[in-house]
């Protein structure tokens, strides 16, 4: 059986004054139907660029993506995207934001049915009470819940998550990881997530793809996550295997992400964000994830 998603020799380069800057080189990945794959790597390594190409928001310089037997050309609602910031339209209520996509995808369905779809997903993500509020009246975490509901409500062939919890505090992040996992357990959508949070990757994914540092980022290593589903965070944290895999990932990010490309660690400066995803520089995000890891080992 061929893969549900087949990414082959995907490359992206930008023209600069000093000639083309290759951000991603020959990125190869096959994802099975119903698989949850995470791309992990340092900020600016091009993982978001890969995701943007899958979403169709950024055009690949070369290579191609086949989704469910069809070559992708441009964006479309067959892929549900959860952006880093929820990007809800502030003049529409949570419900209307979800309906915008539902109307577009299920235009043949009756209006009542479409409303049901939107209401169902908003209720599942825990917004049953506040679905008719404007985004401005919702907390950051609740807004991202709407973002998740919006993506799932499209019943897409694939789910794309671009650091979906990167802007949330640690507690809200745990909560939303749980929400995402529960929702995902219901429909097992094929998913590709980008993150630089090791624990998030381990908790959610079937496979973790580690990317080397950019420019010319590529797949450095792939880790199979063996934990059975449905997963429980407490059980996971009691499993010594969890810490072994965690060490493995951190070791990759701290050392091999650089050395695989013949770069020396520590001298690395984050690239001037050619992928324009507006992430904080690597140093800042590192600091951000450290306290979380302390909490984990203590638990």
């Amino acid at each position: 059986m061929s893969a549900h998603v087949d990414i082959s020799r995907l490359s992206k380069s930008f023209a600069t004054a000093k000639g083309p800057l290759v951000v991603v080189r020959d990125f190869d990945l096959r994802i099975a139907r119903g698989e949850f794959v995470t791309l992990i790597g340092h900020s600016g390594c091009g993982k978001s660029t890969v995701l943007a190409m899958l979403a169709g928001l950024s055009k690949a310089t070369s290579g191609g993506i086949v989704l469910a037997g069809r070559e992708l050309a441009g964006p479309g609602p067959d892929r549900g995207v959860v952006f880093q910031s929820p990007t809800l339209l502030p003049w529409m209520t949570a419900f209307e934001n979800v309906m915008l996509g539902v109307d577009q995808v299920f235009y043949t369905a009756a209006r009542a049915e479409r409303r049901q779809i939107a209401e169902y997903y908003l209720t599942v993500v825990g917004l049953g009470e506040s679905m008719h509020k404007l985004p401005g009246q919702l907390s950051q975490g609740m807004r991202q819940r709407v973002g998740i509901a919006r993506a799932f409500a499209l019943s897409p062939k694939m789910l794309l998550l671009d650091e979906p919890f990167g802007m949330l505090d640690a507690l809200t992040r745990f909560e939303l990881q749980q929400v995402l996992l529960e929702l995902w357990n219901r429909n097992r959508l094929t998913a590709l997530m980008v993150t630089h949070d090791v624990d998030e990757a381990l908790f959610l994914s079937d496979r973790i793809v580690m990317m080397t540092n950019g420019p010319e980022a590529e797949v450095g290593d792939i880790l199979e996550v063996p934990f059975a589903r449905p997963r429980d965070r407490q059980q996971l944290l009691a499993d010594p295997e969890y810490y072994r895999l965690r060490e493995y990932l951190i070791e990759f990010l701290n050392t091999r992400a650089y050395t695989l490309k013949g770069q020396t660690p520590r001298s690395h400066e984050p690239e001037a964000k050619p992928d324009g995803d507006g992430k904080p520089p690597a140093a800042a995000t590192e600091k951000h994830s450290k306290p979380t890891s302390v909490a984990f080992t203590a638990a």
Partner: peptide
């Protein structure tokens, strides 16, 4: 904001929409 336009692109809204 480009984010809003990206929502439109991802959902493939028509020009009029």
């Amino acid at each position: 904001p480009q984010d809003y336009l990206n929502v439109a692109r991802v959902l493939k809204l028509s020009r009029w929409q």
